[in-house]
Design a protein around this nucleic acid. Structure first.
Lengths: 119, 119
DNA sequence: GACTATATATAGCACAACTATCTATCCGAC
DNA sequence: GTCGGATAGATAGTTGTGCTATATATAGTC
């Protein structure tokens, strides 16, 4: 992970669900998609991704099935209706949260630019 | 905290440093400022804030001193030059990260709107 | 045959944010 | 005067998530 480990925390689910929104994917592909979409800045480790997928599955957000018709045995994951709802909910919550940070951060950065000691 | 606990993780430092950018503050005031700036959505618990302030202080990002000249004994915190740099660094990192999420999220939400099963 | 990329999995660790709890002061209402 | 609520700070212990390390196995390339 190029970003702080904890920056990513809480938005990893959102990223994985996003990666699955355009159709079924298997783990290794999700990993690559997120890495590439982020310009190599977010690198989810295999040891992070697979337990996360298992958790999402046990939460009912995704389903999985093994399939080797593409030439190799891979575990394909797919969003359930619950997962789609979860993605939308988490996305709007994310957006709202980003707005909160912005309302705090913008005046702070402005204050820094003016100078730390205003008087 | 109204948001998912882990959403906030990794950006709490950023929020606290932001709250201190416009001048010295004491803990309780920081708590209130963040709550109000977020429209009551981010409520940092006292048990979260005070250890966090101690950590930021031991990291050299802020300094503290007790002062009762305002009528009551309060522990005032202030950004150090290190803390100001930290705030700027974390702010730009945050912005970059938000962009990464956006690049993943926008096509995903578009796909959801078109329909889960394209064909 | 050796090495890399692909592909999945689990055990155990680290640590930030949480809950719960404690202490203490100030102020207005009663 | 005292009761409750807001103010003000602190710590102990828990939880959960992402991490590292490690394991397995196949496909393709040199």
């Amino acid at each position: 992970m190029t970003f702080d480990r904890d920056l990513v925390r809480g938005s990893l689910d959102l990223m994985v669900l996003s990666a699955l929104a355009e159709g079924p994917q298997y783990g290794y592909l999700i990993q690559k998609r997120i890495r590439e979409a982020s310009g190599n800045l977010v690198r989810i480790q295999a040891g992070t991704l697979y337990p996360l997928l298992h958790r999402l599955e046990s939460d009912g957000a995704i389903t999985s099935r093994w399939d080797d018709t593409t030439g190799r045995d891979r575990k394909w994951y797919e969003l359930t209706p619950t997962g789609r709802r979860m993605l939308q909910d988490q996305a709007s919550q994310w957006q709202e949260y980003v707005n909160c940070i912005r309302r705090l951060l913008n005046p702070a950065l402005a204050a820094l630019r003016i100078g730390p000691e205003p008087t």
